[in-house]
Design a protein around this nucleic acid. Structure first.
Lengths: 242, 242
DNA sequence: CGAGTCGTTGATATCTTTCAATCCCTGTGG
DNA sequence: CCACAGGGATTGAAAGATATCAACGACTCG
């Protein structure tokens, strides 16, 4: 992991960068500046390790650009991806806030640029700025909900159900029957997130494809019948067209 | 769900009750009182439903006595238990703080007594009392870590590994080789938490038993060789005695 | 044009699930 | 004190689904 002094950017620029992150949106600039003072700029090449499970969390990371994957090493050598963080996302808020060992390992999926904020400063600032604390609270709440959603998505035994659930998460608010999406990562990583073998995911895609519920073009996917997907999630059985 | 006016308890008594909860430990009494004012007392008989997935979260619940199980209904009619909350635990902090729909369903495993705190008041108070907000932040962080740990425990395919991981969580800080524990719920519920069929969990217990890694007496369990359990978690294979 | 990665596909083994019957323990009632 | 539900846990046999291993095709990059 390459660490560059944040001085490449001015303090105010750094503060702005931090403020753009969803985690700190709306936080008053004074707090932002404090955080920026403690920030280090980190560049991580593709496949570079940001931290490993078990290491102490001294920093909160903000993804400026690139993509970071947090995963759990699994007994059989495989890995389970917990979060895929992209621009403006933050990583390891919980462990950083608590200052405890990282629960997962984080690596860059592509060349990435991040900001490391001292967890100690973060705690201090949270104590003094309730607005900041509440913002963190909100982000953390969303993370909790996201994790529970992940658990929900990984709990069904059937690979078809897991994939259906996953694809359904990209559906817009107004619940359209047809919609498009782009996979945020390689199929291999998606499989790791859904706790499936690459091969199993591939077969699941094929099933959906042959049922004409989706159309696939590389990472671009067209959902042709979201209702059918939802039906899979409920019943686990195919009811095709009704 | 039976709702009784909190007036059975004096306001200060309620505030004290709230303060005992780990979620609000160390919070200044003024904030506690504000929260207490908004609190309702809730009694839930065994198998009573506290709330269902999808309902709006208007309240944060504190378990005064009893046990609450939060679970996700699964496609095949089974259910996945996410959290088992006991005395002094809190339930659905994230959804309540955000005021969004519940992500899971909560029922009482035994006759239970809880306190319902208005989520709106909670948000207000958090804005005004950074100490409270930080306390919530800490609790939420722990919840995140706990969830990730759950994910880690549910990710390995093997039932032996899942059970081993689960039992290992009861190990004391100093990593003793031998230790005892009492299951916090029925084997059926444990199975639901580990994403296993009752029968599969039973068989996993039997394996561990026959390998003399644990001893079982109802809900009381003696771990005879924690290292062996840890080994299972890593390798997924039995290396018996070395 | 060769190297490397990603994704697909096939055949097999392994594991869990499922369903059902049985056993065990507990609390109740006679 | 014994008998009888009732729930929880165990066990057995069969079926189903995914993992695994390996080989192949497609694509990108240098």
């Amino acid at each position: 992991m390459t660490v560059a002094p944040s001085s490449i950017l001015s303090l105010t620029e750094t503060a702005e960068s931090i403020g753009r992150c969803t985690l700190f949106k709306g936080v008053r600039s004074e707090s932002l500046l404090r955080l920026a003072e403690s920030a280090r700029s980190v560049f991580l090449p593709r496949n570079g390790t940001l931290y490993r499970q078990g290491e102490l969390a001294d920093d909160l990371f903000i993804v400026v650009s690139g993509q970071i994957g947090m995963f759990l090493p699994l007994p059989n050598g495989a890995e389970k991806i917990i979060v895929l963080a992209r621009s403006c996302d933050s990583v390891c808020e919980a462990t950083a806030y608590l200052g405890v060992p990282h629960t997962a390992t984080a690596v860059a999926k592509v060349d990435s640029h991040l900001l490391a904020i001292s967890s100690e400063v973060l705690r201090q600032q949270a104590q003094q700025d309730a607005g900041l604390a509440c913002q963190l609270l909100e982000a953390m709440s969303n993370r909790v909900i996201g994790l529970i959603s992940d658990i929900a998505g990984s709990s069904p035994r059937s690979s078809l159900q897991r994939l259906s659930y996953y694809l359904l998460q990209f559906r817009a608010e107004d619940n359209p029957r047809v919609y498009g999406l782009t996979l945020p990562a390689s199929k291999r990583d998606i499989a790791a997130k859904l706790n499936l073998a690459q091969a199993s995911l591939s077969r699941a895609f094929r099933q959906l494809l042959e049922m004409e519920v989706i159309a696939v073009a590389g990472r671009k996917i067209q959902v042709l019948d979201a209702e059918a997907l939802a039906e899979f999630c409920r019943n686990g059985e195919d009811n095709g067209a009704d």
